[in-house]
């Protein structure tokens, strides 16, 4: 997903790196120009405006997230010998790490989804990338079904959307003044995995 021109690519990768350590809203054009050493004129040659650059950054973030998720899932299938291995490996994916860092990443993901929902252009770019994640997770459950590890009555696509929705939707807990105890959340997700999704 590298942009063709090296200057354009450097601007995107610089802004992307910056986005890993601070909220998107704190990234200014001055900061990106200073960090990359690229001139203002070049920025506006390659991008319509600064928000155009930041859209490219969001798409980059989504692509990288997607690739790492898919790779993780394929490794999980390749290394799981038993249903117990599979359940164990699914935990980190479905629990969602609940550290503050990941809270920030989840908020960034919400911002990115919001943009995809409100702009046709962003939906056309991000929709197919999101579809790749949904399909890849569904494919893992299809394979788990073939191995007799999952509930074959369920639709793998619905399972895929459900597991992702828990991760995205738990943003409501980040916003609230009091949070669920992580252990209580993990217990609940484990019950869903063992009693519903992997039951057969």
């Amino acid at each position: 997903m590298n942009a063709s021109h090296p200057t354009k690519e450097l601007l995107i990768s610089t802004a992307f790196e910056l986005s890993l350590t601070r909220p998107m809203a704190e990234i200014t054009s001055d900061l990106v120009l200073e960090t990359s050493g690229i001139s203002k004129g070049s920025l506006y040659h390659h991008f319509e405006d600064f928000s155009d650059l930041m859209e490219h950054v969001q798409v980059r973030a989504l692509s990288i997230f997607t690739d790492s998720q898919i790779q993780g899932l394929q490794e999980l299938m390749a290394t799981s010998q038993t249903k117990a291995d599979f359940l164990q490996g699914l935990r980190p994916i479905s629990h969602g790490n609940r550290s503050p860092d990941v809270g920030a990443a989840r908020l960034a993901r919400i911002e990115s989804i919001s943009k995809a929902l409100s702009s046709t252009r962003m939906r056309e770019i991000k929709g197919p990338i999101q579809q790749r994640i949904t399909n890849a997770i569904a494919e893992i459950f299809r394979e788990a079904n073939r191995r007799g590890w999952a509930n074959s009555d369920l639709d793998p696509m619905a399972v895929s959307v459900f597991l992702q929705s828990l991760n995205i939707g738990s943003v409501v807990d980040i916003l609230a003044p009091t949070q669920v105890e992580p252990e209580a959340w993990f217990t609940l997700i484990d019950l869903i995995l063992s009693e519903v999704i992997l039951d057969h």
Binding site: I113, A116, L117, R123, K126, G127, P128, Q130, Q131, T134, V161, F162, Q164, S165, L166, N167, I168, G169, S170, V171, V172, D173, V180, W185, L188
Partner: peptide
């Protein structure tokens, strides 16, 4: 949190082609 999460989080299926 669970019931609210899957209700809102299904938005993940709202901007995909399928």
């Amino acid at each position: 949190v669970l019931v609210q999460a899957y209700t809102i989080g299904r938005v993940i299926d709202d901007f995909t082609p399928e």
